[in-house]
Structures are given as C-alpha cells and as structure tokens.
Lab assay of single mutants.
Amino acid sequence: KCNTATCATQRLANFLVHSSNNFGAILSSTNVGSNTY
C-alpha cells in the first residue's frame, strides 16, 4: 500500500472514474428499458 498524498489522490480519482462509468451504464440501461416498454 502507498500512503503518499499523490498516490491516494490517484486512487481516489480512479475510483470516481469507475463509479461514474458504472453509474452512466446503469442510467443508459434504465433509459433503454423504459423506452422499450
């Protein structure tokens, strides 16, 4: 594990990016499902 501020910031940034991608995918699939019905 790294405990430097830079490494922690990069890890946090990566986490936010992945979370945003997952959130966007969920919204996209939900919109497609609602449009189908």
Rank of each mutant, 00 (worst) to 15 (best):
K1G: 13
K1H: 14
K1I: 07
K1L: 07
K1F: 11
K1V: 10
K1A: 13
K1S: 12
K1W: 08
K1M: 12
K1D: 06
K1R: 13
C2K: 10
C2V: 03
C2I: 00
C2L: 03
C2Q: 02
C2E: 01
C2A: 01
C2G: 01
C2D: 02
N3A: 08
N3H: 09
N3L: 05
N3E: 08
N3V: 03
N3C: 15
N3R: 04
N3W: 02
T4K: 06
T4W: 04
T4R: 06
T4A: 14
T4D: 14
T4I: 12
T4V: 10
T4E: 13
A5I: 01
A5K: 06
A5G: 11
A5W: 04
A5M: 09
A5P: 08
A5D: 13
A5Y: 07
A5E: 13
A5T: 10
A5H: 10
A5N: 12
A5R: 09
A5L: 03
T6F: 10
T6G: 11
T6D: 13
T6I: 06
T6C: 15
T6S: 11
T6K: 07
T6E: 13
T6P: 09
C7N: 03
C7M: 02
C7K: 05
C7G: 02
C7S: 01
C7F: 05
C7T: 01
C7Q: 03
C7D: 02
A8E: 12
A8P: 10
A8M: 06
A8N: 13
A8T: 11
A8S: 13
A8W: 03
A8F: 00
T9Q: 12
T9R: 07
T9F: 05
T9A: 07
T9I: 04
T9Y: 03
T9C: 15
T9N: 14
Q10W: 09
Q10M: 13
Q10Y: 13
Q10A: 13
Q10R: 06
Q10D: 10
Q10V: 13
Q10K: 05
Q10F: 12
R11M: 13
R11T: 13
R11L: 12
R11S: 13
R11G: 14
R11F: 14
R11W: 00
R11V: 15
R11C: 10
R11A: 07
R11E: 01
R11N: 14
R11Q: 11
R11Y: 13
L12V: 15
L12I: 14
L12H: 13
L12M: 14
L12T: 15
L12R: 10
L12N: 14
L12Q: 14
L12F: 14
L12Y: 15
L12C: 08
L12P: 15
L12D: 07
L12W: 15
A13E: 05
A13L: 04
A13K: 04
A13M: 10
A13V: 08
A13C: 09
A13N: 12
A13R: 03
A13F: 07
A13P: 13
N14G: 05
N14L: 10
N14V: 11
N14E: 01
N14T: 11
N14I: 10
N14F: 11
N14D: 03
N14W: 02
N14A: 05
F15D: 07
F15N: 08
F15S: 07
F15C: 06
F15P: 02
F15W: 04
F15V: 14
F15K: 05
F15M: 08
L16Y: 15
L16W: 15
L16E: 13
L16R: 06
L16G: 06
L16V: 15
L16F: 15
L16H: 13
L16I: 15
V17C: 02
V17T: 01
V17S: 05
V17W: 05
V17Y: 09
V17P: 04
V17E: 01
V17F: 12
V17A: 04
V17K: 00
H18N: 10
H18G: 07
H18V: 15
H18D: 01
H18W: 04
H18Y: 12
H18P: 06
H18I: 15
H18R: 03
H18T: 11
H18M: 13
S19P: 01
S19C: 10
S19V: 13
S19A: 02
S20L: 04
S20F: 09
S20C: 06
S20G: 13
S20V: 09
S20I: 06
S20P: 00
S20E: 12
S20H: 14
S20A: 04
S20W: 03
S20K: 03
N21T: 05
N21L: 02
N21Q: 07
N21K: 03
N21F: 05
N21P: 07
N21A: 02
N21C: 04
N21W: 00
N21E: 01
N22T: 02
N22G: 00
N22M: 02
N22I: 05
N22E: 03
N22L: 01
N22V: 00
N22R: 03
N22D: 00
F23W: 05
F23V: 11
F23A: 05
F23I: 13
F23M: 06
F23Y: 14
F23K: 00
F23R: 01
F23G: 03
F23S: 06
G24Q: 01
G24C: 05
G24N: 10
G24Y: 01
G24I: 06
G24L: 01
G24V: 04
G24P: 00
G24A: 00
G24F: 00
G24T: 12
G24H: 00
A25Y: 12
A25G: 06
A25V: 15
A25L: 13
A25K: 01
A25I: 15
A25P: 15
A25Q: 14
A25S: 11
A25R: 02
A25M: 14
I26E: 02
I26N: 03
I26D: 00
I26Y: 03
I26R: 02
I26L: 01
I26G: 02
L27P: 02
L27Q: 09
L27G: 05
L27M: 14
L27E: 04
L27F: 15
L27V: 15
L27W: 09
L27R: 03
L27A: 05
L27I: 14
S28C: 14
S28I: 10
S28H: 13
S28R: 01
S28W: 03
S28K: 06
S28G: 06
S28N: 14
S28E: 05
S29M: 09
S29G: 04
S29Y: 13
S29N: 12
S29A: 07
S29P: 05
S29K: 04
S29R: 04
S29F: 09
T30S: 04
T30E: 05
T30M: 05
T30G: 05
T30D: 00
T30A: 06
T30R: 03
T30I: 12
T30K: 04
N31P: 01
N31E: 02
N31R: 04
N31S: 06
N31D: 00
N31T: 09
N31V: 04
V32Y: 14
V32Q: 10
V32F: 07
V32M: 07
V32T: 05
V32N: 08
G33I: 11
G33M: 06
G33R: 08
G33L: 06
G33C: 07
G33W: 11
G33Q: 14
G33T: 14
G33Y: 15
G33H: 12
S34E: 08
S34P: 11
S34L: 07
S34G: 11
S34N: 09
S34M: 06
S34C: 08
S34V: 08
N35A: 09
N35G: 11
N35T: 09
N35P: 10
N35W: 04
N35K: 10
N35Y: 06
N35D: 07
T36V: 09
T36D: 09
T36C: 08
T36G: 12
T36F: 12
T36H: 12
Y37H: 10
Y37I: 11
Y37G: 08
Y37Q: 13
Y37C: 10
Y37L: 09
Y37D: 07
Y37R: 10
Y37T: 08
Y37E: 08
